[in-house]
Amino acid sequence: MLQLRYVWEWPVRLTHWFNVISLIVLSVTGIYIGDPMLSVPQTDSFVMGWMRVVHFGFAYLFAVSVVVRLLWMFFGNSHARWKAFVPWASKEGWRNIIGTFSWYTFLRKKPPYVVGHNALAAMAYSLVFILFAVQIVSGFALYGQYDPNGLWASVTAPVLNLFSNQGLRLTHHMIMWLVIGFAIHHVYSAWLMDIKEKNGTLSSIFSGYKFIDPKDL
């Protein structure tokens, strides 16, 4: 008989959707800031100004959301905990990595049956969390330059001196594209799993619940 399992607790869902909204807004405004394609005729307009204000505002939202999610790795359920994101640390994790990879590459009939993240997804998220961290640090380092005596500049000065201003700018730019690539993959995989596993994967990120058949575990 199918069971209803509460997999994604509310902080997980909330930070997930805050991340989605901020990443969309940050990418759109960021692309404009990097290469302003609109040229406006009126001098009293404030297009770049607004783009930057929105970018910085959502940058704070995104940073808080990522930090809350990282903290929740130490308080949440087993699916949210940090251990779920390092499958390579256990033997069972390795079995799942190889099993999921084989299924993705059509070498195996069924993927390993898991309640939370599958092993490959968990590895991808670990990498994405690193990208997020680099993005936040490089972003606030670039942002902090408006006030060289301010808090952000004093915290991020070593990063700027080490990687150079333009180096950080290029990194910030490239990571955006990597995250966009990840988002495409993420939506596709969630959709695929929703069809193949039939456990309500897509709806689970809204409701938190998945339909699990205990005999498959």
């Binding site: 730019h173 594209w177 966009i180 690539g181």
Partner: peptide, 11 residues
């Protein structure tokens, strides 16, 4: 950077 990034996303 943007051309390469767009390439990554498209790929």
């Amino acid at each position: 950077a943007d051309k390469i990034g767009l390439g990554i996303a498209a790929a």
